[in-house]
């Protein structure tokens, strides 16, 4: 089962991961799309409340978080790129850098929630904050799942030289999920933080 050469001819270049993963991701994206559509639908009944409440969100933290996740995705891409040329040590370093950005995202989220709670805002304050907390918490759960998956993948990295089949595959699959988490954040940012 061990393989030391960068031949992975059984992996078609065009499809990363496997088809089941992609269907699960499409299904998850559908659910989030439904959730964002619900936010916009409810917004239509009371746009003023949404605009007023949005003004109380911290756009700066959201921007930092967007940059953190985009950077993180970039590191994961570099990690996969290095793994595909069988440079596992560099791949591992880039993966850790990507994960560090993810941890940073979680830290920023805690600061953001802390500020909200201190200002007396919680998920029962009004309809907007219900959506704000529910969508961001569900997204945060995805970030945690993604970090967990990347951690497991990182722990499975080869100790010099010998590379088991399936490592690259796992890394690609984890990367696909991580990019989805990133994509979801960008849409969430637009719908919850920026929509006017």
């Amino acid at each position: 089962m061990n393989e030391a050469t960068p031949t992975n001819s059984n992996q078609p270049e065009s499809v990363y991961g496997e088809i089941g993963l992609w269907i699960a991701i499409l299904a998850d994206l559908t659910i989030f799309t439904l959730m964002f559509a619900t936010v916009l639908y409810y917004r239509g009944f009371n746009p003023e409340l949404y605009v007023q409440s949005q003004a109380r969100l911290d756009q700066f933290i959201a921007l930092i978080n967007t940059l953190l996740l985009l950077t993180s995705s970039f590191f994961v891409v570099l990690s996969i790129h290095k793994a595909r040329s069988w440079d596992w040590p560099m791949s591992g370093r880039f993966l850790l850098a990507g994960m560090a950005c993810g941890v940073g995202f979680i830290g920023m989220k805690f600061i953001e929630y802390g500020d909200k709670f201190e200002a007396g805002i919680n998920l029962r304050t009004n309809e907007f904050f219900m959506f704000y907390f529910m969508t961001t918490i569900l997204h945060l759960v995805h970030v945690l799942i993604g970090l967990g998956v990347l951690t497991i993948i990182r722990l499975g990295f080869p100790a010099r030289g010998v590379v088991a089949k399936g490592r690259l595959f796992a890394l690609e699959a984890g990367g696909v999920f991580w990019h989805m988490v990133d994509l979801l954040w960008v849409i969430l940012m637009a719908v919850v933080y920026l929509a006017r």
């Binding site: 089941g20 699960a24 998850d28 959730m35 409810y42 998920l123 309809e127 219900m130 529910m134």
Partner: peptide, 27 residues
Amino acid sequence: RWYGWLCAWALVLFLGGVGCEFFFDGP
């Protein structure tokens, strides 16, 4: 394996229900 992905997705989708103790109205 596709069933494994289905279960993983089912698990995530169920999470939407855990907010019911906070709200009297809405989705």
